[in-house]
Nucleic acid binder design. Structure first.
Lengths: 217, 217
DNA sequence: TCAAAAGTGTTGATATTACACCCATGC
DNA sequence: GCATGGGTGTAATATCAACACTTTTGA
């Protein structure tokens, strides 16, 4: 199981990578992952790895691919289930674990050469994320619990690499009624204090259950 | 690897199932599938199984899930990659193979109890198909090479379990310009002979590459 | 008072919906 | 000539796209 962990930092979409400290790939960078334990459901594996690395639980995780070419890993036949995870930049502390020499967020547009086919996995994960974001507001998972409309818009712009018209975007989002106005303002900004919103998960889940999609462009 | 093979027969969406003839699940119905061979890329497995069962090649196949709960198979730990395949009702001949006692198309809404979690796999495959069909006209893969607009509309209605307005549907599809008018008519029908179309794959692929989606409702 | 981002409305173009009748064919 | 599905147009409504200025705040 390998995990493409996405995070937003400023105007950049980042992926969490680790540097191996032992074995045949010592010193090389890679996606976090692990062999599927025989006593653990496959779908539990991403949560276990994420807990170890970031201390975070209840993170948004989704399977997006399975890689099974014969020679994708050099020394043995390995089939990997590839998940992506979206984590909020609010608070977490990176713990590299025993087998890692280093752990680092890297810009999605500037990933070094990784082991095996991990660059390919990241590319596919990114495509899967973009595809999903075009019909569902999954990007809220990357934002703090409370966020401004500008942050929300920038999240779309950063991930999808597009420019959105602010007035039209706000009109659309507010009309859809999936954000809750907290009536609080962001403090300590050297300009007009923006309003803070939270995501209305219940409302959105109801819409989604009815087959509704939130299409941005 | 297990495979949910979809086909259209009349107004019904069907799934191809086989009845095992040996082993611990003798006599029980199941999805076609096989253990992943060590000398074969995982993604080649569905084609191999499909070739055996139907004689068809170059069939539309896509991964939609991976099932990996500890006890999903009773006697050992098995993780399965689940693919769906869309096959045209034009012509194929079912060959049940050596290990199967019988092979049969079954209505998606009337599937008997299958081995392990295969009912669950079918449900998930059906959901994946519906989701995909709502933005891409993958359903053409279920139709003959030449088809009428009515067949095309019925395909959407059958799979998505909805009713579409014929005039609006035709207007939309023809405006999108992804069907090619063959200028041929269906013969031997006891009513006004309908026009036949083929799918304009090149045109559609161009649109798709630009990020276009064909949304039906 | 200035810099920086927040916030807001209107208009024209486009797309979507709702809806009912005539047409062509084989029997 | 009749039964069967094939094929078509229009008007009302909703959605989308383009576009620029005023407001608030802290420094």
């Amino acid at each position: 199981m390998d995990c493409v962990i996405f995070g937003l930092e400023g105007d950049e979409l980042k992926v969490l990578l680790i540097q191996h400290d032992e074995g045949p790939v010592e010193g090389q960078w890679a996606l976090p992952g692990d062999y599927v334990r025989f006593d653990i459901d496959l779908e539990e594996m991403p949560s276990i790895v994420l807990k170890q690395l970031t201390g975070l639980e209840n993170v948004f995780v989704e399977l997006f691919d399975v890689l099974g070419k014969i020679n994708r890993v050099t020394h043995q036949r390995v089939i990997t289930a590839a998940y992506f995870a979206l984590i909020s930049t609010e608070k977490y502390e990176l713990k590299k674990g025993l087998e890692a020499r280093d752990i680092k967020w890297m810009d999605i547009h500037n990933i070094p050469k990784l082991i095996y086919d991990h660059n390919e996995i990241i590319n596919r994960g990114y495509e899967a994320l973009k595809l999903k974001l075009r019909r569902e507001p999954v990007g809220v998972e990357l934002l703090p619990r409370q966020f401004t409309l500008t942050q929300f818009q920038k999240m779309y712009e950063t991930i999808l690499d597009i420019k959105l018209d602010t007035r039209n975007f706000r009109k659309k989002i507010l009309k859809e009624d999936i954000l809750i106005d907290t009536n609080q303002k962001e403090l300590n900004v050297p300009y007009r204090a923006p309003n803070l919103y939270t995501f209305n998960a219940e409302k959105y889940d109801t819409l989604k259950a009815k087959g509704y999609f939130l299409n941005i462009y």
